[in-house]
């Protein structure tokens, strides 16, 4: 089984959306992260239209997108690029495919796991796990980011009265 191939229905849906694209490039023009991407948005869409979704699943692009919605807002056809990227990310995450840009991926995972467990985010657990998975410690901004999320994540689990229900959300 080739795991890097998207399910047919998702492929079909993406293809349908991309039929409208006339490659004007406005998505790339306004993308704040285009410089950091291996495939800027227009190229990314073109590759998908050409059926190269397995390449795109392992692209840096899907993890570098900051979901700022600029491309979606300005696209003449309202092609929802953030949604397409989210789909691909979700798929990679589910199949544990990509090793690129792991920290964000781990961040996403740990974040959700925490909510699952505590209803809100549990500080210690979150940071601990993140450390473990990402192995990314030393950059200054990163340390800052850790602090930021540390604050964000300090939890009062007791506030959630129905923790069972929260868990149910994730079943």
């Amino acid at each position: 089984m080739n795991e890097s191939i998207l399910p047919q229905e998702i492929k079909q849906e993406i293809k349908e959306t991309l039929k409208k694209c006339y490659a004007c490039g406005k998505c790339t023009s306004g993308c704040p992260m285009a410089a950091e991407m291996d495939f800027p948005p227009r190229e990314f869409l073109k590759m998908l239209a050409l059926g190269k979704e397995s390449d795109m699943l392992s692209s840096k692009t899907i993890w570098v997108c900051s979901s700022c919605q600029t491309c979606y807002s300005r696209c003449p056809f309202e092609i929802n690029i953030p949604e397409i990227i989210d789909r691909l990310k979700a798929y990679v995450y589910k199949r544990k495919l990509s090793n690129k840009e792991k920290p964000t991926q781990v961040l996403h995972k740990v974040f959700l796991d925490n909510i699952k467990r505590f209803g809100r985010i549990h500080e210690a657990g979150f940071i601990g796990e993140w450390k473990l998975f990402s192995g990314k410690w030393f950059s200054d901004l990163f340390l800052g980011a850790k602090m930021f999320f540390k604050g964000k994540l300090a939890i009062f689990p007791e506030k959630i009265k129905k923790i069972e229900e929260v868990r149910k959300l994730f079943k």
Binding site: A23, G25, K26, S29, G30, C31, A34, P40, R42, P76
Partner: peptide, 26 residues
Amino acid sequence: RGRVSKVFEDDGKIVIWSVDTLSGRK
């Protein structure tokens, strides 16, 4: 070849953000 997404002023110049879709460069 590319559609402009942002225009802003900087030091008396008008800065244009666009892309050259034929080379793929911003």
